[in-house]
């Protein structure tokens, strides 16, 4: 990540945490740790590991070739995921595109929930760092359908408490407090451009789909599997909210 962006990001994140008061869960020492981690994101090493894994398949050049774009177009192309890829005849997230590439290059296909896959996904997305998110939800009928499915999935109340994503992420509740946590605006917060992220509370690298599964689990919604059309659709819907915002991987989150 460019230092300029890193600093801007750290200021934004720190100021979002700096409204003190016992209302909020983060103590001063937590905040100090957070500031430290922003300088030195523990996930940098995981991203580097992901780069190594990708180099086994030809690195950036191999990926560009596989996806049918030039290496210079690769960052822009990656900034448009999830996208419809004709060869697979489906809307895929980056991890799924990597799975197809693993298969076609004769490598073992990693599961979407494996930590090697997370590392690779994070590296691959970081190729697009500084690039504005350019997902095109009107690119074709498949993307239109995925966006529509994403919105329905986001708005549908279900689970043990009858909640939907919208219950906590609708414009009229953003900024209010859910048990010490300010409810984030998924667009303004650039969720689409800041995951995979290192989660301090979990000490691991989490993808956007994984983060959304976390919300389902916490709010007692049945957790839908990684890669399912519905969670890819959620990723499409949530990513589109941050369209135009610069990609900055790995993110750093609570």
């Amino acid at each position: 990540m460019k230092t300029g962006i890193k600093i801007a990001l750290s200021l934004a994140l720190l100021s979002s945490l700096s409204f003190g008061g016992e209302q909020f869960a983060m103590s001063d020492s937590d905040r100090a740790m957070y500031a430290e981690m922003l300088e030195n994101n523990p996930a940098d090493i995981m991203v580097a590991h992901g780069e190594e894994l990708l180099s086994d398949m030809g690195g950036d050049a191999g990926l560009a070739k596989y996806l049918g774009v030039s290496e210079s177009e690769l960052p822009k192309y990656i900034a448009g995921f999830p996208r419809y890829i004709e060869k697979f005849d489906m809307v895929v997230g980056l991890g799924q595109a990597l799975q197809a590439m693993m298969h076609d290059t004769g490598k073992k296909v990693l599961k979407l929930d494996s930590s090697d896959m997370n590392d690779m996904l994070a590296y691959t997305k970081s190729i697009a760092n500084d690039e504005p998110i350019n997902i095109d939800v009107n690119a074709n009928q498949h993307m239109k359908d995925a966006y529509a499915l994403g919105q329905i999935t986001f708005d549908t109340k279900r689970g043990g408490r009858g909640l939907s994503c919208l219950s906590c992420h609708s414009p009229d509740v953003i900024g209010t407090i859910l048990r010490t946590q300010p409810l984030p605006d998924l667009g303004v917060n650039n969720s689409g451009g800041t995951w995979p992220a290192y989660r301090m509370t979990k000490s691991n690298l989490t993808t956007l789909q994984g983060r959304m599964q976390g919300c389902m689990k916490n709010a007692l919604l049945a957790v839908i599997p990684l890669g399912s059309p519905d969670i890819v659709a959620l990723e499409v819907y949530v990513t589109d909210k941050a369209k135009g915002k610069a990609i900055a991987i790995p993110g750093l989150k609570r």
Binding site: Q96, Q99, I224, G227, S228, P229, D230
Partner: peptide, 12 residues
């Protein structure tokens, strides 16, 4: 059979 894309419709 290559790309993981399990059905979530029944779960939902």
């Amino acid at each position: 059979g290559v790309i993981e894309s399990p059905d979530a419709k029944k779960i939902i």
